[in-house]
Design a protein around this nucleic acid. Structure first.
Lengths: 139, 139
DNA sequence: TACTTTAATCAGTGTCTCTGACTAAAAACA
DNA sequence: TGTTTTTAGTCAGAGACACTGATTAAAGTA
């Protein structure tokens, strides 16, 4: 079986389940919004940075940040070091969603480990981390 | 690092590269179309089957099949065993794209194996196949 | 100062995906 | 057999997401 599909199937399952958990907890956001949100640095990120990290255009990133801002998950503040730029910062409201996502993630990882075994899980992680070195365009 | 992102990064890289190779060879199709095309059985598939396999609604599958049909990559023929249904079949034109995709896939797999080693590659495949047992909704 | 680059936005468009409502054929059943 | 329910697929409408191209304002550079 095609290695691409093999990678995609568990990925999609994981993403769907985490999004379901997050929205069930009352955090109303979409997958694209969540993907972007994840990439924001602790001190805030510029839109251009964010676009690059998430592998979308600045326009798309701006569109998503608009929605996240409207929903109260991020705020834009002026960048003190550059008058053209603004920093996108995660709000407390969005930070409250993190433990929900983390808990679901832990649940899924435990399930996976139970099914494929501790050894295989460690090997999977190891192989993927090494693979990231040549496939992550942001690295 | 988050196992979801770890899975997603090489997947996206692979998909992008294969699509680039396929479109560069003159086969003008989108990712969504290609995903659906992959799922069509040798003897043809019903729309409902296809939708289930690709995890989209019947409407979405129909929309994509319309486009694939317009581009000449599939044809719809009546299902002899069911007057309501039609079989979506892959055309020769689409079949010509397969070796292009396969060649790119082989190239990528070779690169990956060169970077992470034969042993890790085998472990990755093994772990993912086992994981598919619990994460593939179509299985 | 004049020119170039960079950060972000505005305008417009195409693709993908969904929900809901519908038609027609097949299957189930009374 | 005739009626009801299920199944296969389509039509209509809407929203989300992604793109290209053009523009504005600030910063950096010659």
């Amino acid at each position: 079986m095609n290695i691409g599909l093999l990678l995609y199937i568990p990925y999609r399952d994981l993403e769907n389940r985490i999004m379901a958990a997050v929205t069930a907890a009352g955090f109303d956001m979409t997958i694209a919004q969540a993907r972007l949100l994840q990439r924001i640095n602790p001190g805030g990120s510029r839109l251009t940075e964010l676009a690059e990290a998430a592998q979308v255009t600045k326009q798309t990133a701006g569109f998503l940040v608009d929605q996240l801002e409207k929903a109260g998950f991020v705020q834009r503040v002026p960048d003190p070091t550059d008058g053209r730029a603004r920093l996108v910062q995660v709000t407390d409201k969005a930070r409250e969603a993190v433990p929900v996502a983390d808990a679901e993630m832990a649940r899924i990882e435990a399930e996976w480990e139970r099914h494929i075994g501790k050894r295989r899980m460690a090997q999977l992680r190891d192989a993927l981390e090494k693979l990231g070195e040549i496939t992550d365009p942001y690295r």
